[in-house]
Design a protein around this nucleic acid. Sequence first.
DNA 1: ACCTGAACACCGTTCAAGT
DNA 2: ACCTGAACACCGTTCAAGT
Lengths: 200, 200
Amino acid sequence: MRSEGLEKVTMRRLAQELDTGPASLYVYVANTAELHAAVLDALLGEVELPADRSGTGWREDLVAALTSYTRLLFEHPQLARSALVARPSGANYLDLVERLLRLLSRSGAPREQVAWGVDNLLQYATATAAEHGTQESDPTSRDDWDALTRAAHGVDESEHPMIKAHLPALLSGTQDARLSWGFDLVINGILHTPVPHATV
Amino acid sequence: MRSEGLEKVTMRRLAQELDTGPASLYVYVANTAELHAAVLDALLGEVELPADRSGTGWREDLVAALTSYTRLLFEHPQLARSALVARPSGANYLDLVERLLRLLSRSGAPREQVAWGVDNLLQYATATAAEHGTQESDPTSRDDWDALTRAAHGVDESEHPMIKAHLPALLSGTQDARLSWGFDLVINGILHTPVPHATV
DNA sequence: ACCTGAACACCGTTCAAGT
DNA sequence: ACCTGAACACCGTTCAAGT
């Protein structure tokens, strides 16, 4: 069950790689979602997440860990999409969650905010990778730019004045700049949003 | 191209619904992603988003509009998943973006923050729907609970103390409570996170 | 010119039959 | 008991042939 350089992780492809029929895989996993979760966890095990640098603040370490995870997902957008609908639960994933909880706790935020917050951080990382992840460098993806981009240029001033006014900002920023702004946004949001009293 | 009660929106299914071959659809759309975007936009046109209630604050109206959009996506998780990887660009979607920009602008936040922020709000709504959207009420989805839930109960105190400590909070809260907390989180994050100077 | 039947190249999952 | 070949029920997309 080693994670080779498989492009599209598929029951049939993996079975072929293993010189057997696709039915055999169902001895180990119940369905494709579980297969993807297992592969993702294996990849997570091969990546060395940056260690917490004792000299720096929790925030930098938190962003570093998230960035590292996101980079992995960016290279496997298919796994990111799977992880979005069925959260992984492998040992390496739990290690990541453990670490994120520890780092975010150092912010001093209440435990409930930390718990719910980590969920949102992981969702943001996963969704962004699913959205923008390198889709096998398809030549069609050149104009596959955000659909908004295409639509935006033909926007009617009188019908959508706000879009027109925000256009430069809507399209500005590199992918990296937006990703790290997004991490900051979610972290700041966590720190500033108490969980409703009744739910705890 | 009316949007009937189609469960799984598929090239072949839709073609059959229209008493023709699947090839015929390629006259109107280039691929499945475009088909899904078109269907989503049509559905968006049939939903009446709650009007801005003049007596209330921008924040309530913003959350109401987002909730309405999210509810629609929850009923069509497949479309949510498509919308995540290829943002729609139909007229009704642009209307939604226009409105979100207008409402968030009333917060007084700088234009760049508003523009980038709306993107994150839409991503959060879409990702949440893709993640938790009613998957055709499959009987298997009863224990399809968050994988974390299953894994969590067998968590080793010494190996993952933070997960153990946060366990109740990690699993607490209804779906609705978490969704609206998430909207608050993103909104608060937008208000507190200036976009980097260089990118504007 | 426009539409589409039929074919191609894939999928996930199941189950009866084999070892 | 464990594994798996072969079949079933789907997919998206293309293209040559028809009107």
